[in-house]
């Protein structure tokens, strides 16, 4: 009974505290980008701080009004003064379900937000969402072509857009790409993997995978899927003519790298 009352009264504030502690910690340790677009950072942290102040104020002020005398004086004749708090109005037989569910929710929130290490999306989501299947991720920011010169700043997204735009083989003939991303396997060709990134427009929920194909027979022996690599190479025609990827990178060497601070592209 006491526990039930405690849970029903403090569940919301405690869940808020869990959520905003996690949010502020992610902000401080620079990991908010794993979950949301950078344009929301300031707003998110400010709201978390405001909510934190309110939640602490709730701890300070709400128990001060032990509800029995408070309700009693305003409507002294009323029988239903809610002295027990609204939560106890449920039937007694299933009464335990609600608090048990509440405790489970709190445990789940603690595990997900405070114990699990923050993580990017993985190749499981690449498989779930068509790689390079998203028109907007690949055309929204179609790169402005820098005439003769400098393609070094081109990202996975830029190159993937160019490849998709159908530029011919002669266009790519003299170009060298340096791309960083994680490895996802090509579904059709075991000799090819994709250097993959997710394009995020709002939060990780809408992430769309994009990638540049790399032809490297036996890559499975040296690298695991989901590991991060940097590939520097020129573009060639795919030796496997049957593959849907006509133009691929064929690097001499592939460098392992660590996951960048901003794993998604925008």
């Amino acid at each position: 009974m006491v526990i039930r009352r405690l849970v029903s009264r403090w569940q919301g504030v405690v869940l808020s505290l869990i959520g905003l502690t996690a949010t502020i910690w992610l902000g401080l340790s620079g990991q908010l980008a794993l979950y949301i677009h950078p344009r929301y950072f300031v707003f998110t942290v400010i709201m978390a701080v405001i909510a934190g102040v309110l939640a602490l104020a709730a701890f300070a002020l709400v128990p001060g009004t032990s509800d029995a005398p408070d309700d009693g004086h305003t409507h002294d004749g009323d029988a239903h003064t809610d002295a027990d708090g609204p939560s106890d109005g449920h039937g007694s037989r299933w009464g335990w379900v609600w608090p048990a569910g509440s405790v489970l929710t709190i445990i789940a929130a603690v595990v997900a937000l405070l114990i699990l290490p923050p993580s990017t999306l993985t190749t499981a989501t690449v498989a779930q969402r068509d790689l390079n299947g998203s028109a907007s991720a690949l055309t929204l920011k179609a790169p402005a072509l820098p005439g003769k010169g400098d393609y070094s700043a081109f990202t996975v997204r830029d190159w993937a857009s160019l490849l998709r735009s159908g530029a011919g083989q002669d266009f790519f003939a003299d170009k060298t790409a340096t791309v960083t991303g994680f490895i996802s396997a090509d579904k059709t060709d075991p000799n090819v993997f994709f250097v993959t990134r997710f394009v995020v427009t709002c939060c990780a929920v809408d992430a769309q995978p994009i990638g540049v194909p790399v032809y490297h027979p036996g890559w499975q022996n040296d690298f695991k899927t989901d590991s991060w690599v940097t590939v520097t190479s020129s573009f060639r025609a795919n030796p496997n003519a049957a593959s849907p990827e006509a133009i691929v990178l064929i690097p001499d060497s592939i460098k392992s790298t660590s996951q960048p601070a901003q794993p998604y592209v925008y």
């Binding site: 707003f43 709201m47 939060c203």
Partner: peptide, 14 residues
């Protein structure tokens, strides 16, 4: 976990 957390972190301030 990542997707669920992302929904929470995104919606919480709103």
């Amino acid at each position: 976990a990542t997707l669920s957390i992302s929904v929470v972190v995104e919606s919480l301030p709103f």
